[in-house]
Write a protein that binds this DNA or RNA. Structure first.
Length: 564
RNA sequence: GCGCCCAUAGCUCAACUGGAUAGAGCGUCUGGCUACGGACCAGAAGGUUGUGGAUUCGAGCUCUGCUGGGCGCACCA
């Protein structure tokens, strides 16, 4: 639960704050207010471990040159009780801080103490958050877009858990409404076609073309024969949907599980109607005067809340739109179940939903900032160097199951999390399949396996990983050792940033950096056969590296193999 | 036409939300295994951050005009 980087930033903020007060007290500079002291980590090593731009920010108000302010502040700084060794003024007025190496040794002690909990922080403070993701219509198999959303949503959830939130992973099952109607019509058409021939009935224009619909009906007929041929059509469609829908859901569930994605709640859209919550919600909106009638339909005044246009929630045929039940669904999340935050993942093709959903949330009396909608860009699949289109209609789409079979869970999850959600993702199937150094996931896994191999070898000679307190960590002073320790120290702060930006993609980059620094260390620094104290110190560092790699891969739900 | 997203090395992407000399991986080139796993390491080449303005001590990042691409703009979801 320790974020040492954050602790040090806090130390620096205190030191700077006190230095300002002291300088003002001595009349060296005017008493100007500053809302926040920003501490950042410079990328150049010569610029120290941390820096602040405060002198530059104060310059105008204090009517002094930044460099002058920086010098005054530095002269009035007191470093006792901190990791700070010295501070110096550089460039246009930055104050750079250099730390005692002991902060890195303390990092190793923290990792040794926290083990599988290292990296966990508590910015979530136990707040309840629901992450809703995938939520694909259960009318067919999952595709590449769902695969990206699945990897992303699951990792966002894991990151939030690591950050101290009480997280629920949820799948919203669209088992009501128009899509299900279409599903039923499609099944019915295939059913009749299979029994009475292709020409017996025309397949509906906007029906689901996929092979899976036909397969369903073939199986159904095998089990139950033609008993529905003369049934009432509405009855028949309901029966066919009731047959196929649970099968689809089960397949989706199985597929996601194979992908390492486990939803805690499968929330049925239909249940909102059954429980009366849907009606409650509509009545609530009506009573607040947020609905009006036009062209025989009921409209929601989304424009009152900044959306571009109002939106229909009850169609003129009396049937509600998807959006209507979605409002009830969000009311359920916030009010019935009391989530502090709601996070929804949506493919870019649904981004039009964002503004009106925010509007709806505000309409039911909830601060819309409590709703985060993460839009992820769609996936372009490359195979043999060319774009493989994925459309649900042609049935030529690559399904999640295909992906797992060809690429494997680890590579797929890793690749989907190497890019920020907002950036378009080109998924190179040929590259993903390769089990070579071109494929970044193996680079990281290799580092872990290599460490395990080292530990095994030493263990077989009776040498086990020592306890941090029994080791002279000051022996770790080589650049490769320092760089590796610094990177390990960043992990809790990486969790913090990933949480605040809802971007787990930075963790794949982070863990790649860890692996890279480890490999450099490995090449330069021997462990086995070194002088005993040095060996112990390095062994502890190696073990800490293993812990961090394993913890990060754990968040990504990617295996950390002991051999490969 | 309107709205949202994107444009950074040959390719795929970063840049801690305004900081100092824009970084990685792949690919290319040059080196490195008689010791813990070579799926590795060290180094090199590669850039006017699509483009014109604006804001300020300071812009890849903010505002704005273009260009090119993706996605939306339903009484579908």
């Amino acid at each position: 639960m320790t974020n040492i980087i954050e602790n040090i930033r806090e130390q620096i903020r205190r030191v700077v704050g006190k230095a300002m007060a002291a300088a003002v007290g001595k009349g060296l500079m005017p008493d100007v207010s500053i809302n926040e002291i920003i501490v950042e980590t410079p990328k150049e090593e010569e610029h120290g471990d941390f820096s602040t731009n405060i002198a530059m920010l104060l310059a105008k108000k204090a009517k002094k040159a930044p460099v002058q302010i920086a010098s005054i502040l530095i002269e009035n700084m007191d470093f006792t009780g901190t990791y700070i060794k010295r501070a110096e003024c550089a460039g246009p007025g930055f104050i750079n801080f250099f730390l005692e190496t002991s902060w890195l040794y303390d990092t190793l002690k923290i990792i040794d103490r926290e083990r599988e909990d290292y990296g966990r922080i508590n910015i979530g403070q136990g707040k309840k958050v629901v992450v809703e993701f995938v939520s694909a219509n259960p009318t067919g198999p999952l595709h590449m877009g769902n695969a990206r959303g699945g990897a992303l949503g699951d990792c966002i959830a894991s990151v939030l858990q690591a950050a101290g939130y009480d997280v629920t992973r949820e799948y919203y099952v669209n088992d009501a409404g128009n899509q299900i109607e279409k599903f039923g019509i499609s099944l019915e058409a295939r059913y009749i076609q299979l029994l009475k021939g292709e020409d017996a009935v025309e397949f509906p224009e906007d029906g689901y073309q996929g092979e899976d619909i036909i397969d369903h009906m073939r199986d159904y007929i095998e089990q139950y024969g033609d008993k529905l041929l003369d049934a009432d059509p509405e009855e028949r469609r309901r029966e066919l949907v009731n047959y196929a829908l649970p099968i689809n859901l089960e397949r989706i569930k199985k597929g996601l599980e194979a992908y390492g994605v486990f939803h805690d709640v499968w929330f049925s859209e239909q249940s909102l109607y059954d429980s009366g919550e849907f009606e409650e919600t509509i009545n609530h909106l009506k009573s607040k005067g947020l609905l009006y009638e036009k062209d025989d339909a009921q409209w929601f005044r989304a424009t009152d809340f900044g959306a571009e246009k109002d939106v229909v929630i009850i169609r003129s045929n009396g049937l509600p739109t998807y959006f209507a039940s979605d409002i009830a669904y969000h009311r359920n999340k916030f009010i019935k179940r009391g989530f502090d935050r709601v996070i929804n993942l949506l493919g870019a093709d649904h981004h039009g939903h964002v503004a009106r959903m925010k509007a709806a949330v505000e309409a039911i009396g909830i601060d819309p900032d409590r709703l985060d909608i993460v839009i992820f860009q769609l996936v372009r699949l490359f195979k043999n160097g060319e774009i493989a289109r994925m459309s649900k209609r042609t049935g030529r789409a690559i399904s999640l199951d295909d992906l797992l079979e060809e690429v494997g869970r680890d590579a797929a999850r890793f690749i989907f999390n190497t890019k920020a959600s907002g950036s378009h993702l080109d998924f190179d199937l040929d590259l993903a399949v390769k089990q070579s150094n071109e494929n970044p996931v193996y680079y990281v896994q290799y580092a872990h396996a290599r460490i395990c191999s080292m530990l095994r070898l030493l263990e077989s000679e009776g040498i086990s990983v020592p306890v941090a307190d029994e080791v002279d960590l000051t022996l770790l002073a080589a650049p490769e050792e320092i760089n590796l320790m610094k990177k390990l120290a960043e992990y809790p702060d990486e969790i913090r940033i990933a949480t605040q930006t809802l971007e787990p993609s930075r963790l794949t980059r982070y863990v790649t950096d860890v692996a890279s620094l480890f490999h450099s260390f490995y090449t330069e620094c021997r462990v086995k056969g070194e002088e005993e104290n040095l060996m112990k110190a390095r062994l502890l560092l190696v073990s800490a590296t293993k812990t961090v790699i394993k913890n990060v891969l754990g968040i990504l739900s990617i295996n950390a193999p002991e051999r490969m």
